[in-house]
Design a protein around this nucleic acid. Structure first.
Lengths: 249, 249
DNA sequence: CGTATGTTTGATCAGCTTCAATGGAAGTGG
DNA sequence: CCACTTCCATTGAAGCTGATCAAACATACG
C-alpha cells in the first residue's frame, strides 16, 4: 500500500459514474461521497489492500482488478470474489475478519473513504440505504452462484461459468471489445483460476487447452477471448444476462 | 402452502424476540412489523414455500426448519442455506429469481409479511436500515464460508464444517441441549446433506459412519449429536464461535 | 401389509490430484 | 546486452477421492 496521490475534482464527475448503469444520486449524496473520500492511491500487482486484522476504511476500485480470498489454516485458499473498476471493496468490513484478504491482479488505483461513510449516507437518505442493501444482496446472489459452481459443476463447466461471469461483469462497465471475437481483461494466473474454481493449476491447464482447442475461449496474455459465446453459455448452464444498475460511490 | 391460522397478539411479544441475541427495536418498528404481518400458516415437510417464479412477500420461519436450494437445468441441486426459527426468508427476493426454492425439512410455521414491509421500515428508521444491511452482509459472509467448504475442503471436513455451523446457529437461538453430549435438531436426509456439501448420498453415508465410529458426531432420528466438539472443530478448521445479535421481525 | 422413502453396502470406475520435470517469458543486475 | 533468476505454463505418470450403479435392508406410513 503506497504512493498517495493528489485528488482532483469531485466524485460526482468520476468517470465511473458516466456509465448508463450507474445509479443516479442526489446532490446531497454526491456531496457526502466527495467529502468522505480520504485519498486515492496505487496498489501494485500482487500486493494486498488490507493486511489481515487491521482497521480500514471503505474502498472502491478506481482502476485495475483484484480478488478476495479466504485462506484456511493450512494454506488452502478459496477465491470468493473478483473486483473490477467501480466495485466497492470492504463495505462488509473485510478488515475485522480474519483470513480474508483482497489482492491486486494488476496494478490498481484505489479510492479510500472514511470508515463511517456508509453510516452517514444511510442516515442521510433512505434511498441510499436501499441501494446499499441491494448491493449487499447482489453480493450474496453472486456468492450463491459461486456455491453452485463449486458444489455441483464439473471442471469445464466451472471454468466456463467463471469466464461468463467475468464477461458479463466487464460488459456492464463497457470494458469489452467486440471485434469478431469478444475480449476483455482478465489477468488471472492458473493458480488464481484454480483457487477460484476449487481445482488445481494442472487441471486448469487441461481445461484451458480443451476450451482453446474447441475454439470456445482462450485466456492468454491477461486477456480473455470468447470465440463461441453460445457454447460457453451451454457449458455454464446459463445465458449471459445483462446486469442491472449498480451503486457507484 | 396451506392451513391459514388465526393470528393472536403482536409481533412485539413474539417468543422469538425473548432471546438475548435479538436486536432491540423501537416502538415504531414494532408497530410497523405487527401491522405488516399478513398471516401465519403451516407448510408441511417437503413442501416448498415459494413456487418458482411467483410473486411473494417477506417471511420469517416461526418454527421448524428449511433449506434454500438452486437447481441447474439438468436437475443437479445445490443447497445454499439452511433456515431455523427466527430466520428471515426471502428478503432478497427469492420469488423473482428462477431456479431458487425454499423447501421445508420439517412441518413448519411461517409468518408472511407484506412485500413492501422492508421498504417501509427502511423509510421509517435509519437504524433499521443498518440492521437489514447487517443481515444481508451476514448472509454473504456465511455464503463465503460455504464457498470455502465446497471449493477447498475434503468430504469429511465439509460435513464437519456443516455440522458445526448447524450447531452454532442452533446455539444462538437456544435450541441446543447439553446433556453429556451436545444435541440439536437437524432433520436432514443423506440427499440433503449431499446437496449441501457437493457430495453424493452414498459418500455422505460413508462419512457419517466415519464420524460415528470415531465417536465425533452422529446424525440419527433427525437429531444431530456432537460427542467430540474439539475434534469436530479441528476437522472443520474453525472453532465454534458465538454469534452476535440478529434482527428478528 | 404393501408401498414409498431413506439407509447401507459393495464393486467398479472416472475425474481430478499429486508430484515431478521441462520449457518459456519476463524482470533484474552486472 | 547478456546471464541469471523467478515465476508461470505445460506435460506426463501414478494414484486417490469420491462418483456411479445396483441391490439389499430398514423404516415409516396409509
Amino acid at each position: 500500500m503506497s504512493k498517495q496521490a493528489v485528488i482532483k475534482g469531485s466524485c460526482e464527475n468520476c468517470y465511473l459514474r458516466k456509465s448508463p448503469r450507474s445509479i443516479a444520486l442526489g446532490p446531497r449524496e454526491h456531496q457526502l461521497i466527495s467529502r468522505s473520500l480520504v485519498r486515492r492511491f496505487v496498489v501494485e500487482e500482487g500486493e494486498q489492500l488490507v493486511e489481515t486484522g487491521q482497521a480500514s476504511g471503505v474502498y472502491t476500485l478506481y482502476d485495475g482488478s483484484a480478488f478476495e480470498a479466504i485462506t484456511l489454516p493450512d494454506g488452502r485458499r478459496q477465491i470468493v470474489d473478483f473486483y473490477i473498476p467501480g466495485d466497492i471493496i470492504g463495505f462488509d468490513g473485510i478488515a475485522g475478519r480474519a483470513q480474508r484478504s483482497v489482492t491486486m491482479m494488476s496494478s490498481a488505483i484505489i479510492c479510500e473513504f472514511v470508515p463511517d461513510m456508509l453510516d452517514l449516507l444511510i442516515e442521510a437518505d433512505a434511498a441510499f440505504a436501499r441501494h446499499l442493501i441491494a448491493a449487499a444482496l447482489e453480493k450474496a446472489r453472486s456468492l450463491e452462484d459461486l456455491a453452485v459452481r463449486l458444489g455441483r459443476m464439473r471442471a469445464i463447466e466451472r471454468v466456463a461459468d467463471l469466464f461468463l461471469t467475468i464477461y458479463t461483469r466487464s460488459a456492464a462497465i463497457n470494458r469489452v471489445s467486440y471485434g469478431g471475437s469478444i475480449t476483455c481483461a482478465f489477468p488471472a494466473t492458473h493458480r488464481i483460476l484454480a483457487d477460484a474454481t476449487g481445482l488445481t493449476p494442472a487441471h486448469i491447464n487441461n481445461i484451458l487447452r480443451e476450451l482453446r482447442e474447441g475454439r470456445i475461449a482462450v485466456l492468454s496474455g491477461k486477456i480473455l477471448t470468447i470465440h463461441d459465446l453460445p457454447q460457453l453459455e451451454q457449458l455454464a448452464g446459463t445465458a449471459a444476462v445483462e446486469l442491472g444498475q449498480r451503486l457507484i460511490l
